[in-house]
Nucleic acid binder design. Structure first.
Ligand SMILES: [Mn+2]
Ligand SMILES: [Mn+2]
Ligand SMILES: [Zn+2]
Ligand SMILES: [Zn+2]
Lengths: 146, 146
DNA sequence: TAAGTTTATGCAAATCTTTGCAACTACGAA
DNA sequence: TTCGTAGTTGCAAAGATTTGCATAAACTTA
C-alpha cells in the first residue's frame, strides 16, 4: 500500500473525513525531511492541488494535530512548523534562542514525566512533543568567552 | 522598595536598559492575577503611559522573556499569554484541548528532566516552563460517556 | 446508487504578531 | 553635567494565523 493511502486510512480510522486536501497536505509533510512552515506546506501541496487555499492548510494541520498524526513546533519568533509523527521515534525539540538551530532529543524521561503529571493532576496528556529553549553548545561557548 | 523598583533593578542587573515602557509593562504583568494577552497588557499599561504602542508591547515581552523575568504560554489556537516568573513557585501548564482551561502543575520532575537533557545534549536549557496539552478531568469524563 | 446530513473548503475580511526606519532616550565616559 | 553611542520606541506596513459565511464534497442510510 502506498504511503499516502496508509496515512489516509489512519485518518479515517480516527474519525476524520478523508479529503484530497488532507491527504495531499499529509503526504507533503510526510515527504519533507525537515519540519516545515504553513507556507512551505502550502507551496508543496499546491503543486498537486492548484486550487488549495492557505486557510485550508491552517485548518488541516489543526485537524492532523488533533488526529495525533503530526507534531507542531514553535520556535521563538518564527512561524509554527510541522512534522509527521513517527511512533517509532518519539522525540522532543531543543531550540537555541541565540542562533535558532533545532536539535532533536530522544529522552525516555519525557514519557515518565508525562505519566507522573497525569497521576498528580488527573489530566490526560496527549502530546509530549516538547519544545525546550536554551543555548546550543556553540552559542554557549561563544557566550562564555566574550 | 516598591515592587516596580525592584523589578526594574533586576532588569538593569541583567544588562537591559530600564525604560518607562519596560517598567510599566512589567508591573502590569506582575499585578495581574492570571496570564494575560498582549492586548490586555497593552490596555493595562496604556492607562499609565498613553502613548504606548502595541508593537512595543510585543518587543518588550520578548526582552522580558530574554531576561528571564516572564513566562510565555501559548494555548492552542488562542493568542500568546504572559505571566511574571516566580522563582519561589516554578510550574508548568496543562491546557485542555477541549475546553481551553488552564491548570498549573508543580512537578519537581521537570527540573530533573531538564538537567538530564542538558547531560545528554550539552545544550543549556533556559526555560522549563512547559505547556502540555491534553484533556482535563471533566472533558475526559464527557468523552468516556458519549 | 440516490438522497440527506454533516463536515470541509474557498474566499475575503478580521485578528494577531513582526519588522523597517527615522526620531528619541538611557546610560557610561569624559 | 554634558556628550556620544548603542539600544528603544512609535508609526506604518508587512507577514502570519484565524474566522464567518456560502458552496461543495464526504460519508450515512435507505
Ligand atoms: Mn522533530
Ligand atoms: Mn503559570
Ligand atoms: Zn545556537
Ligand atoms: Zn476541558
Amino acid at each position: 500500500m502506498s504511503c499516502g493511502k496508509r496515512l489516509a486510512e489512519q485518518l479515517h480510522e480516527r474519525g476524520y473525513r478523508v479529503t484530497a486536501q488532507r491527504t495531499i497536505i499529509l503526504e507533503t509533510i510526510a515527504h519533507m525531511e525537515d519540519h516545515i512552515s504553513a507556507q512551505q506546506v502550502y507551496e508543496g501541496a499546491r503543486e498537486r492541488l492548484p486550487g488549495l487555499n492557505l486557510a485550508t492548510v491552517y485548518r488541516t494541520v489543526e485537524s492532523l494535530k488533533g488526529a495525533g498524526m503530526i507534531n507542531m513546533l514553535s520556535t521563538g519568533g518564527e512561524p509554527m512548523r510541522f512534522s509527521l509523527c513517527d511512533p517509532e521515534h518519539p522525540h522532543s525539540h531543543l531550540v537555541c534562542r541565540e542562533c535558532g538551530s533545532i536539535f532533536e532529543v530522544e529522552a525516555e524521561e519525557i514519557e515518565a514525566f508525562a505519566r507522573r503529571v497525569e497521576e498528580i493532576t488527573s489530566f490526560r496528556i496527549d502530546s509530549v512533543h516538547l519544545t525546550l529553549e536554551g543555548l546550543c553548545q556553540i552559542c554557549k561557548q561563544k557566550q562564555a568567552a566574550p
